[in-house]
């Protein structure tokens, strides 16, 4: 394996969020990336962030999380605030699950929810918009505009629908999550497409898609390792930090069918093993859904 000289970064630095001084309203901004070698090896400098996922329409959210957080699910800004202050998340990922509704057209709510969640939080914000080409362009425009200058991390760009996210990110100064289906080549291709559309390399975060533990997680694990190895070997098109969101983990049979008194323990164990392994594979940001998982991950990362 040919590695870079020690003074060259293997992974590009990417700044998430913007403080007042940086043109936004966040109290902190984070720099991820900047790694030089393999994750957790030697003087590994990369910062690792734990994000708690919340949503604006909890209908499809895992019951175990709904039970645990109670009324918060009906109020994204309270939920976001609790994520930061009570659960200790480094940042929040806001999923606009409402856009999955058929005939969705409440675009004004997208803007206002974005504003309210930004208001309620002090740290950088990840927004997962729609994944329907029909509404993409308007959804991304609205949340992009509402968060102008905040260096939001906007998701998700895919190979056949990247232009709307890219346009919103370029117009309002945000970053893009580039998601590809568990394939190192497809990840690279999407980064090239984004670059050739004008998105600067330091505004792209790779999401190689994370399968649930026990349900194909090994594919995601290896693809993350391969992406990181390619970056170390000098591939500029893969030298971006990675985000991993094992979102299916809480929907698996083992968690769903666990005895009521064991549900939280089961959910947290499976999320923890998956999320931690994603960090070991090279992810810089890992998104989880159970608040207790956040706490356990933070403890390990800070040890």
């Amino acid at each position: 394996m040919s590695e870079n000289s020690p003074d060259k970064l293997a992974i590009r630095e990417v700044r998430l969020g913007a403080t007042r001084a940086e043109g936004g309203t966040r109290e902190v901004s984070y720099v991820i990336g900047g790694d030089r070698g393999l994750p957790f090896c030697g003087n590994d400098a990369g910062r690792r962030l734990v994000a708690l996922e919340i949503c604006d329409d909890p209908a499809i959210w895992p019951p175990v999380v709904r039970n645990y957080v109670g009324d918060l699910v009906n109020n994204p800004e309270d939920w976001a605030q609790a994520a930061e202050r009570r659960y200790g998340a480094d940042l929040v990922r806001l999923n606009f699950t409402s856009t999955k509704k058929r005939g969705f057209n409440a675009f004004a709510d997208i803007a206002s929810t974005t504003e309210r969640v930004l208001e309620a939080t002090t740290r950088p914000l990840i927004i997962e918009g729609s994944n329907d080409p029909q509404v993409d362009s308007e959804v991304f425009r609205r949340c992009g505009e509402a968060g102008e200058g905040e260096r939001l991390l906007l998701g998700t760009a895919e190979a056949d629908r990247y232009r709307s996210v890219a346009a919103a990110a370029l117009a309002y100064g945000h970053l893009v999550i580039a998601q590809s289906p568990i394939d190192v080549n497809l990840a690279k291709q999407l980064n090239i497409l984004l670059r050739e559309t004008g998105v600067p390399e330091d505004r792209i975060v790779i999401d190689p898609y994370t399968g649930a533990l026990g349900y194909g997680f090994e594919y995601s694990y290896s693809v993350m390792e391969r992406i990181r190895l390619a970056a170390i070997a000098g591939d500029d098109d893969l030298a971006m930090p990675m985000i991993s969101a094992p979102t299916d983990t809480l929907s698996i049979r083992e968690v769903r069918e666990a005895a009521p008194e064991e549900q939280d323990a089961m959910a947290v164990a499976w999320e923890f093993y998956t999320a931690y392994s994603a960090f070991v594979a090279g992810a810089s940001v890992v998104c989880v859904r159970h608040p207790l998982t956040v706490e356990r991950l933070k403890k390990v990362l800070e040890a």
Binding site: G216, E218, Y219, S222, E262, A265, A269, W270, S277
Partner: peptide, 23 residues
């Protein structure tokens, strides 16, 4: 360690030691 942890750990081990060429 707890039952939840055992199951997750054994599952992770199974995943990581699956032959990628024979998924």
């Amino acid at each position: 360690f707890s039952r939840a942890s055992r199951e997750a750990a054994l599952t992770l081990r199974q995943n990581i030691y699956t032959d990628p060429q024979h998924p």
